[in-house]
Structures are given as structure tokens and as C-alpha cells.
């Protein structure tokens, strides 16, 4: 019984981690779906999102300790950060990727790595390299039920992630812009001939992906804290999650994120190996999945991709 609760606890922690990975993985997968290119600067967008959120939140809060205002400031800060990152994402696309759209496929990849370094080193230079706390906008006392503990910030993480994913899915499936995105990912030249403004679709994709990264970054900073290199490892893992789920596939990114989070939390104790090797398990799983199913779990070539 005790062991059961212990593993349920790992599972729960894994889902929270996974929800964050999933949000970030969406950005990788959407951009890949449309441009067939891995935006390696995506992880650093989440770091910028976390800093923007933190500074906005602290500025709005000031000296106030009013519980309602704390929560309101937090959501305003999240919104500000999403808008800021969306604009930043579109801007980066315009100056660093768009001019290279018809170049060798490796060129935009290198450009993305360059942007990644500029962002993370720039943040280290501007904000310093020490970790900062993101203060909880509510009382974070854990809720313990039958030995199983969950904190309000974990609940927030899961709820916000689910809302974001539902909104994104209905946006892609129900709106004209979503339809244009799906069309562009299927066949870019034909979509252009049918009168779809491909440049706008691409800009929109970067905006949405970056806004989701901002949310992921803010949620991640409760568990990981805010620091200049926070995007590197988290971004890499989200990328892995996107590949596990089937890159280019939105549901795949969500599934991959959750699977990776759970693997990280449960893997080491389940196999009885030292926890220091938890990342090894995650990446070993990636290799196995790719060997068995190179397109990822939900990756099918005929499936609609965004």
C-alpha cells in the first residue's frame, strides 16, 4: 500500500513536469509542422517568458499582500509575458529565419542556435546568472490526501496546461486561421496558390508557439526557478517530448510531454537505478521509441499536421 502511494506520488509529480514539457513541445512541433525546421531558440523564449512574467508580476504587486490582487497580477503578468514572447517570436522569425527560408536546410538551424546563444547570454548579462525565486501568487501549502501530497502550484500547472491545449486544439480545428495553418503544413506551394497568406500563417505559428512557451516558462519557474540558462535543458527535453509524440503532431507533443515527465519521475525508482541517471532513462527511451517507431508514437505521414 505504501509503495503504491509512493508511486502514485511520483506519477503525480511526473504529470506536472510533463504538462510543462508538453506546453513547450507544442512550439517545437507547430514550427516543425509548417517549416520542417527545429527552432532551437524556442527553449530560450521560455526563459525570456519567465523573466518577463517575474518582473511584470513583481512590478504589479508592489508592496501589496492582498490575496486576490496577487492572483490577478499573476494572470496579468502571464498575459503580458505571452504577448511579449509572441512579438519576440515573430520578430526573431522575421530577422533570423525568413531570409533563410530558401537557403540550405542547415542554415536556419544554425541561425536558430545563434539566436539561442544571443538570448541566453543576453539574459545572463542583463539579469545576472543567479537563480531567482518566482514567488507563489497564493499560499502554496501542500494538500495531503491519504499520504499523497499535491501543492496548489501543481494544480495550477495542470489546469493552465489543459486549458491552453484545449484552446489551441479548437483554434487549429475550428478557425479560418487554423485551417490555413493545417493547409500550409500539408502543402505550402499549393496553399499559396489557393490564396493563403503563408507569411502570415508562419508569423502566427511563431506567435502562438512563443506565447505557449511563455506560459510554460512561468509555470516551470515555480519548480525550477528563473535563471538565464533555464531554457537549455528544459527546451531540449521538450524537443525530445515532441519527437517521442511524433514531431509535427499537436496531440503527439502533448502525449510526448506527459510520457517524458512520468518517465523521469518514475523511471529511476522503478528500475532501481540511481536517480542521478534519470535523464539517461528519458533519452534512452527516446532512442528505443525511435528504433521501434521512427515517426514517434502519433506520427503518421498521412495525418494532418500543424
Amino acid at each position: 500500500m505504501n509503495t503504491l502511494i509512493q508511486y502514485l506520488q511520483y506519477f503525480l509529480n511526473g504529470i506536472t513536469l510533463g504538462a510543462i514539457y508538453a506546453l513547450i513541445a507544442l512550439g517545437y512541433t507547430m514550427v516543425y509542422g509548417i517549416l520542417k525546421f527545429i527552432n532551437f531558440a524556442h527553449g530560450d523564449i521560455l526563459m525570456i517568458g519567465a523573466y518577463t512574467g517575474l518582473f511584470t508580476y513583481l512590478a504589479l504587486l508592489g508592496e501589496s499582500t492582498n490575496a486576490a490582487w496577487m492572483l490577478i497580477s499573476f494572470f496579468i503578468a502571464m498575459l503580458v509575458s505571452m504577448v511579449f514572447c509572441a512579438v519576440l517570436g515573430m520578430f526573431i522569425e522575421k530577422i533570423a529565419y525568413k531570409p533563410l527560408r530558401n537557403a540550405n536546410r542547415l542554415a536556419p538551424l544554425l541561425s536558430a542556435i545563434g539566436v539561442s546563444f544571443i538570448l541566453s547570454n543576453g539574459a545572463a548579462w542583463m539579469f545576472g546568472t543567479q537563480s531567482r525565486r518566482f514567488p507563489y501568487p497564493f499560499d502554496d501549502t501542500p494538500i495531503v490526501i491519504a499520504g499523497l501530497s499535491i501543492t496548489p502550484h501543481q494544480i495550477l500547472t495542470i489546469v493552465v496546461s489543459i486549458i491552453m491545449m484545449i484552446v489551441l486544439t479548437s483554434f487549429v480545428n475550428k478557425t479560418r486561421m487554423g485551417k490555413a495553418m493545417r493547409a500550409t503544413s500539408l502543402d505550402q506551394p499549393t496553399s499559396e496558390l489557393m490564396g493563403i497568406d503563408v507569411n502570415r500563417v508562419i508569423s502566427m505559428t511563431f506567435a502562438i508557439g512563443s506565447a505557449l512557451a511563455a506560459v510554460g516558462g512561468i509555470l516551470a519557474s515555480f519548480d525550477f526557478r528563473v535563471y538565464a540558462s533555464m531554457g537549455t535543458m528544459t527546451g531540449l527535453k521538450a524537443f525530445v517530448a515532441a519527437v517521442i509524440g511524433g514531431i509535427g503532431n499537436i496531440q503527439g507533443a502533448m502525449l510526448g510531454g506527459i510520457i517524458l515527465g512520468i518517465l523521469e519521475s518514475v523511471g529511476a525508482p522503478l528500475l532501481g537505478i540511481p536517480s542521478a541517471l534519470r535523464d539517461t532513462i528519458a533519452f534512452a527511451t527516446l532512442i528505443i521509441i525511435l528504433l521501434v517507431k521512427p515517426d514517434g508514437i502519433l506520427g503518421k505521414n498521412e495525418r494532418e499536421k500543424v
Binding site: Q6, Y10, N13, D223, F224, P269, S275
Partner: peptide
């Protein structure tokens, strides 16, 4: 055990 730079220790604590 954990690696330097790890941020999530909940499994080890469990």
C-alpha cells in the same frame, strides 16, 4: 544521488 543542475528532487525524496 542527483546531477548538479537538477531542479526536481521529489523522486529522490520519495
Amino acid at each position: 544521488t542527483c546531477m548538479v543542475g537538477d531542479r526536481d528532487f521529489r523522486t529522490q525524496l520519495g
